[in-house]
């Protein structure tokens, strides 16, 4: 196995909305090919972190480096072109577009040929997408919409896949299916950054993780090291 190279690094990442500090000086890194999980209760700042990485919220302080390039003030569209994709919190599929059109939109930055090959692979791997390719995404169930959101991000064969709360609002069966889909992604050698409140299934997918509370990092390390804190984090 080739030696892992660093793909993403944040240093002192700070995000503010109005008067509230959603993230205070976060340092994380993701190596190529690895899966990293960020767990924390609601409002801990998980989504702010994901949005800051893709550029959907402006960074108030600190820096973001992707593949050795400083992307702190790079536009979202440019970051997408550099190989970052997100499956956002709440899925946000293009409701009026078919599954196929959603995936086409996901591969917007690719050449037609590459994109066709990528979509063919996705249709083969996830038959549900092929079966309902002409269905409007807004008419699908929550689990199916999550699959579309992931497939939309995967079409572009990103170097870094951001999964923001992929299990949100899903039934246990749908969570298991989504987990399986994420494993398929991992086999492809993509780096995955997952933010999730449901620590148990999320921790199973990752090798390393971070525990976030009130916008600050509480702990980081291998899954075994953070498991206890992650599961006891005061959701309840």
């Amino acid at each position: 196995m080739a030696e892992a190279t660093e793909l993403l690094r944040s240093e002192g990442l700070t995000v503010r909305y109005g008067g509230i500090e959603a993230l205070r000086g976060i340092d994380i890194y993701v190596n190529s090919g690895e899966t990293v999980v960020v767990v924390g209760a609601n409002g801990a700042g998980k989504s702010s972190l994901m949005k800051a990485v893709i550029g959907m919220v402006p960074v108030a302080g600190g820096s973001l480096v992707f593949e050795g390039q400083n992307i702190t003030s790079t536009s979202t569209a440019k970051r997408a072109k550099m190989g970052i994709r997100i499956s956002p919190e709440g899925r946000r599929v293009f409701a009026n577009l078919t599954i196929e059109a959603n995936m086409l939109a996901g591969g917007y930055t690719m050449s037609t040929k590459e994109r066709a090959a990528s979509m063919e692979w996705l249709f083969d791997t996830f038959p549900m997408l092929a079966d309902r390719r002409n269905a409007k995404a807004g008419t699908l169930s929550g689990g199916q919409q999550q699959m579309v959101a992931i497939a939309r991000a995967l079409t572009a064969r990103p170097k870094l896949l951001l999964l923001d709360e992929p299990f949100l609002g899903l039934s246990p069966v749908a969570i298991a299916e989504t987990s399986n889909a994420i494993r398929v992604v991992q086999e492809q050698g993509m780096a995955v950054l997952i933010s999730e409140q449901m620590a148990r299934p999320a921790l199973k997918l990752a090798s390393r993780g971070y525990v976030l509370r009130s916008g600050s990092l509480r702990r980081s390390g291998a899954v075994a090291e953070i498991r206890e804190l992650a599961l006891s984090e005061d959701y309840l």
Binding site: G142, S171, M198, R200, A202
Partner: peptide, 26 residues
């Protein structure tokens, strides 16, 4: 479980047509 997820994948009934089942749920 609702907050943290299931303890183990084994808790979930693995069915070939789980998609359909899920559709019924929703």
């Amino acid at each position: 479980t609702a907050y943290l997820g299931v303890v183990d994948d084994d808790d979930v009934p693995e069915t070939a047509n789980s998609s359909q089942q899920e559709e019924m749920n929703h």
